[in-house]
Amino acid sequence: MDVFGISLAVLVLFVGFGLLIGVLFGFFGMGGSFLVTPALLVMGYPSRVAVGSGLAFVFGTSVIATLKHRDLGQVDYKLGVLMIAGTTAGIEVGKEIVLHLEELGMAGSIISVTYVFLLGGIGLFVTYEALKGDGDGGVDHDAADADIDADDIPDIAKKIQSYRVPPMISLRGGISVSLWMILGVAFATGLLSGFLGVGGGFIRMPALFYLIGVPVPIAVGTDLFEIVFSGGIGSFLYAMDGGVDLSIVLPLLAGSALGARVGSAATSIVDEGEIKVYFGLMLLGGSLAVAVREIGNVYGIGVFDTVSLVLILGSALLVSGAVVYSSITALREESGSPSHALD
């Protein structure tokens, strides 16, 4: 039976996959399309459709997540607008590169290889930081929206902040950064966003913290605000070239909208420190999945495609399951504590 031009089984798969990704998006404040685009590539969709539909999905999900985070006051609108300017230019360049590579018949392979190294690199970094246990590199949901302590600013960000090329821009958290440094970081993340078909959250949120030195809670809120625009512009550009397939985007969004609520609610219950290592492992799983698929393509081993898809779905299931499980455990522990009886 077909619904919206796709089989019922695929429709259920998309809604379920969207639900898993929504949980991750709502909890970590970053992306999801880094899982969607490889999954669509594995399922045999053309690169342009996989990238364009991934961006459109990110756009819809980020609208919902931003509405939920807006009330927390964790958005630096000035920084967000500057990031949008740099990111827009980067996305356009990234999209042109994809279209050019598609003409050469190399887009799928190069996007996949870039994914492997990017996801693998960030996955290793996050896992290392989580195992090191120094509290950096993740979202501290309990952190106050206060000026950042100099000791909490990463060394790279201090270096970037030390370049006093005018005009200097004052940001929330009491920091001041050169306009050109902000635009440079925005362009680089936009380039990756347009090239890989991701909203850029899993690149930009760490970049805002590690490169610019924005406090993590504001980095998350501003990143989500920015993803609305980068995802919207990116998907619009791809849609003009026929790269957005609503039969993919709409069911994914139906699942992710619910998942984002679950993930957002979980942020007030679970300490992310418990989950961060799973997040790093999920990125590594995504990286491994794309690598396996590419090896299968090179050597003509069809079953590797299935292994790859299972790895992607398994990674998302593992981490979103860990978020839900930890939430339930925390709720039960809370209800059993003496303080709860007084509430």
Partner: peptide
């Protein structure tokens, strides 16, 4: 129109 449809669905779902 495509992006508007995605935005519309997002608002409805929200």
């Amino acid at each position: 129109v495509l992006i508007g449809a995605v935005l519309f669905e997002a608002m409805i779902l929200y």
